[in-house]
Amino acid sequence: MQIPDSSDIRDKRIELGLTQSDVAEKSGLSQSMIARIESGTVDPRLSTLKKIVDVLNKEEVSAVTAGDIMHSPVIGVQVNETLAQTVAIMEAHGISQIPVLEKDVAVGCISESAIINAMDEGRIQKIQSHVVSDFMEDGFPTIPLSSCMDTIIHLLHNHHAVLVADKGKVTGVITKYDLIGMMTK
């Protein structure tokens, strides 16, 4: 692990849009100490440097928004789509659940589990004679483009995906896989 020098700290702070006062407040250090470290006039203890680096790392993660990590376009189906067409779309894209949209607004979702449960209960004999609305479930949570990483992580604890909306219209989707994939970049 490389220890950052004074210019690394200053450059990262500026990149994140933070002032020296912001870093000082979040790290428990004084603004003048941050200024002296950035100017190179003081050689900080490792524990002091760690406080600053921890703040910068946390802010870097917090700076990532839903708009940054979502993928688009969203694969979805309409309420009146046949179950046969929906299953074909899910199969073609290798997905197990899919949002149900009306004019780019999420109104629910349909999943393999819902279809299997309906089959098990005897509610489906021929897949061609049913539409999505017959077996639609509650939809995925929807968040704005500006939502932070903490919000996304919290929602993905309880849901397979999160939809991202701009001005009420679904523009992207984030899955657990997307979040895990971010760690490999």
Rank of each mutant, 00 (worst) to 15 (best):
M1G: 15
I152P: 03
T171W: 00
I14T: 12
S47P: 04
D54V: 09
D166F: 11
P144Q: 05
D68H: 10
N57G: 13
I75C: 04
I127D: 00
M119L: 15
V74D: 01
E25Y: 14
Y177W: 05
S111M: 03
Y177F: 08
H160M: 08
K51D: 10
V55K: 04
F140Q: 00
D43A: 14
V105D: 05
A118S: 07
A114S: 10
I110D: 01
L56M: 06
H159C: 06
R123M: 11
P4R: 07
V23T: 11
Q128H: 14
T41M: 10
M119R: 10
L155P: 02
T19E: 15
V87W: 00
F135Q: 00
Q125C: 06
L156H: 04
D120A: 15
E137W: 04
H93K: 08
G181V: 01
V170T: 04
E38C: 10
S113V: 03
V23D: 13
E60H: 09
D22Q: 15
E137T: 04
V100F: 00
S72W: 03
A114G: 04
V53C: 09
D150V: 08
I34P: 09
S7F: 08
S129I: 08
V170S: 00
V105A: 07
V132G: 01
V23H: 09
T151Q: 11
S30G: 09
V61I: 14
I52W: 05
D138S: 11
H159Y: 13
A84D: 01
S146Y: 11
M182C: 13
I124Q: 01
S21G: 15
T82C: 02
M183Y: 11
Q78D: 12
S30N: 06
V105W: 07
L56A: 10
